[in-house]
């Protein structure tokens, strides 16, 4: 299994009332979408692993939005932020926070809705299609401009998911064990001189720092 990961680390804030950590599967790489995405002129699409990896930096810091009918995107209803992205096998996993205090209806839907009913959808800009005459478009380049929480049946990729953490985390996003290793590796990488902006774990300054760990790990 291969893991490519990247994260934006936010300072810890105990019992933050507006942060509800989430995890989700945003899309699958190297696999055709279940249905044609909007804007693909009726073609199903394949987001290549290479394109997804190249686009990972553009995903961090992007917002997650929702539509009240849970059937698509509404870029003006940004209810959360993506702080972490991993390509784990064929799954592009994301983690981040929902603005739970600002959007109680979203948290309510996630906590009281049917388990496994919700999925995710990306929004891409400046995508490049290898061959537009192909039955299934292969996306070889793209930039993530956002993501949405929606009903899985409304997502072009049926095997996406979205889940809130069981309880509010007192600090950062609930990092999967897999990601913790990547984070540790990335921190070590930074300390080794990739960047001079070395920061201690206890640093609570209200600035964010981007840690790039776009390296392959064998697990």
């Amino acid at each position: 299994m291969q893991l490519e990961a990247m994260a934006v680390h936010l300072p810890e804030v105990a019992d933050h009332p507006n942060r509800a950590p989430f995890t989700g599967v945003l899309t699958l790489v190297d696999e055709p979408s279940t249905k044609p995405p909007s804007g693909a002129r009726g073609h199903r699409v394949i987001l290549t692993r290479r394109a997804a990896l190249s686009a990972l930096p553009s995903l961090l810091g992007m917002a997650v939005d929702y539509a009240p009918s849970w059937d698509g995107h509404d870029a003006r209803r940004k209810c959360g932020i993506i702080t972490q992205a991993d390509v784990d096998g064929a799954r592009l996993r994301v983690a981040g926070y929902l603005f739970a205090k600002d959007f109680p209806e979203v948290e309510r839907q996630m906590r009281h809705g049917l388990p496994g009913a919700m999925g995710m959808s990306w929004e891409l800009a400046d995508a490049h299609v290898e061959d537009m005459r192909a039955e299934i478009w292969t996306l070889t380049r793209a930039t993530f401009t956002g993501a949405a929480i929606l009903l899985r049946e409304k997502a072009a990729y049926r095997n996406t998911s979205f889940e809130l953490a069981a309880a509010r985390c007192r600090s950062n996003t609930p990092r999967p064990a897999l990601s913790e290793r990547v984070q540790a590796e990335a921190t070590r990488h930074l300390r080794n001189g990739v960047t001079t902006a070395s920061r201690s774990a206890g640093n609570r300054k209200e600035s964010t720092w981007i840690c790039r760990a776009a390296k392959t790990q064998s697990i």
Binding site: S38, G72, S121, W122, E123, L124, M132, A155
Partner: peptide, 17 residues
């Protein structure tokens, strides 16, 4: 031009509602 270049301005992975 878009067909020739293969560039698409915007795609959203939601089923076209």
């Amino acid at each position: 031009d878009s067909e020739r270049s293969g560039d698409v301005q915007r795609i959203v992975a939601a089923v076209e509602t």
